[in-house]
């Protein structure tokens, strides 16, 4: 009797198998993130963030659901713009990190000397505290938007590189790779046809799970004043500014932007975990 209800939206989800539910979660979460990111291009900061001194430091209301700041700017618009920047930084940084991780992961499979080298580089970068390294790179690259992207991008590749190195090593010892060699296939052919398709799912999941780290680190160093410049509406900047007003009772200045940041980070985590379920069915068979 439930079968007939299957197409009866929205209840079909209740009866759908886990795989469909997983896909649904991924799509919804991605839509939220994409719309936040795209809204950055449609909101004009000059018109949407007009200073209005008749409306300063208002508590959240229906007109300003996140309240307003000390210059009367709408905190909701500021938060959305800040999150958009965070996602942008996360995306750029993830691309840089992924490229580095892939290069080092592949390099480690060339021979044992290269592998030793890669292992030491990974350990070296892993042993320095992230924040410190990001600040150093960011400042030495001139700070600002690109400084932050480089700082975050050049430091977040270690976990993915480590996973890729182990995974490629494992695949290279499988019998079907050995057989491929005996069938006269070149190294490059084996990498392209056998190894790459088997690690691509690891790479995708690795990239998605890199976002939350990159976003949090960007916000932290902006908060500390080493990151984005104060006139960008970044979450880190918003939080840093809000510190000065918290004592006056304007809790909403920090509360909502902070909560939104957490929400975004959790969404990325959710997507990453569900994509992992989808791409590796053998590990999640229930």
């Amino acid at each position: 009797m439930f079968k007939n209800k299957k197409n009866n939206k929205p209840w079909f989800l209740y009866h759908a198998n886990l795989r469909v539910k997983t896909l649904f979660i991924i799509i919804v979460a991605s839509l939220i993130l994409i719309s936040i990111f795209l809204s950055n291009f449609f909101i004009n900061p000059n018109t949407a963030l007009t200073t209005d001194f008749s409306n300063i430091n208002q508590a959240p209301s229906f007109e300003h659901i996140f309240g307003t700041d000390w210059m009367g700017r709408d905190m909701f618009v500021r938060t959305i713009l800040g999150l958009g920047i965070s996602i942008g930084v996360g995306a750029f940084a993830s691309v840089i990190s992924t490229i580095i991780a892939i290069i080092l992961g592949s390099l480690s499979s060339v021979n044992s000397v290269a592998d030793e080298f890669v292992a030491s580089v990974i350990d070296l970068f892993g042993s320095i505290p992230h924040i410190l390294l990001i600040i150093l790179i960011s400042i030495s690259c001139g700070g600002g938007f690109y400084g932050v992207i480089l700082g975050v991008g050049l430091t977040h590749w270690t976990p993915l590189a480590r996973v890729l190195r182990a995974e490629i090593k494992k695949i290279k010892t499988t019998e079907f790779i050995k057989l491929s060699e005996q069938l006269g296939k070149s190294k490059w052919w084996i990498i392209k046809k056998h190894i790459f398709p088997l690690v691509i799912s690891q790479i995708i999941v690795g990239v998605i799970l890199m976002f939350p780290h990159a976003i949090m680190h960007e916000a932290s160093i902006s908060f500390l004043g080493f990151g984005l410049s104060p006139h960008e509406p970044a979450i880190g900047i918003i939080l840093a500014e809000a510190m000065g007003y918290l004592s006056t009772g304007a809790w909403w200045l920090a509360f909502y932007p902070g909560l939104s940041l957490l929400f975004i980070v959790l969404l990325f985590d959710l997507i990453g975990e569900n994509v992992h379920k989808l791409l590796n069915p053998q590990t999640t068979n229930t």
Binding site: T174, E175, F176, K178, L179, Q182, L183, G184
Partner: peptide
């Protein structure tokens, strides 16, 4: 290149 001596294995799924 192609090895004229080819192995067939006990567990075909492993190769």
């Amino acid at each position: 290149g192609f090895n004229p001596i080819q192995l067939i294995y006990q567990h075909p799924e492993k190769i």
